[in-house]
């Protein structure tokens, strides 16, 4: 049995930018935030200043329910850096609000991963400042 688990402290820590500070602040408070264009509702792949669709400059932060479905995944056995514990499962999750999230799946075995698998966000701190949003099967 190989349960996929969150990474321990000691892995490389993301450095927030002026555009993403609010996202990481939300994560620290266990809130999954994303940006939506106030004018047309478009959602980008990350925080933005100009809407790629309607070119409005009025993105607003929204809170996701944290529920979504597995869209793509891999199971890593040779990490880029020895501080990562293997195996782990980087994944693209499609949130129910339509957001594409890059994350990792935990709380199940690699063999359980499948297209469309229902997932819910789970927060795990990796430093004082940074908490990562992982995804697990609901209730696990």
């Amino acid at each position: 049995m190989t349960l996929l688990q969150p990474q321990p402290r000691g892995i490389p820590v993301p450095r927030p930018s002026v555009h993403s500070e609010k996202y990481w602040e939300g994560s620290r408070q266990h809130q999954l935030l994303y940006q939506r264009c106030a004018a047309c509702g478009h959602i980008g792949l990350r925080a933005f200043t100009v809407c790629a669709r309607c070119l409005a400059t009025s993105p607003v932060w929204e809170r996701s329910t944290g529920a979504g479905a597995l869209y793509s995944w891999t199971v890593v056995w040779r990490p880029p850096d020895p501080s990562f514990k293997v195996p782990y499962a980087p994944a693209v999750v499609r949130l129910d609000e339509g957001v594409w999230m890059l994350s990792a799946v935990i709380g199940c075995e690699p063999g359980e991963l499948h297209d469309g698998m229902r997932l819910a966000v789970q927060f795990h701190a990796i430093s004082e400042e940074i908490t990562l949003p992982y995804f697990a099967p609901p209730g696990r």
Binding site: S72, P80, P90, I126, I130
Partner: peptide
């Protein structure tokens, strides 16, 4: 192979994993 961009670094992404996410689809 292991850029430290903020949305990928914490999840242990590197080039093999990035291309694997495309291959899977």
């Amino acid at each position: 192979t292991r850029p430290t961009n903020e949305l990928v670094v914490g999840f242990g992404l590197f080039t093999a994993a990035e291309f694997a996410l495309m291959a899977r689809r």
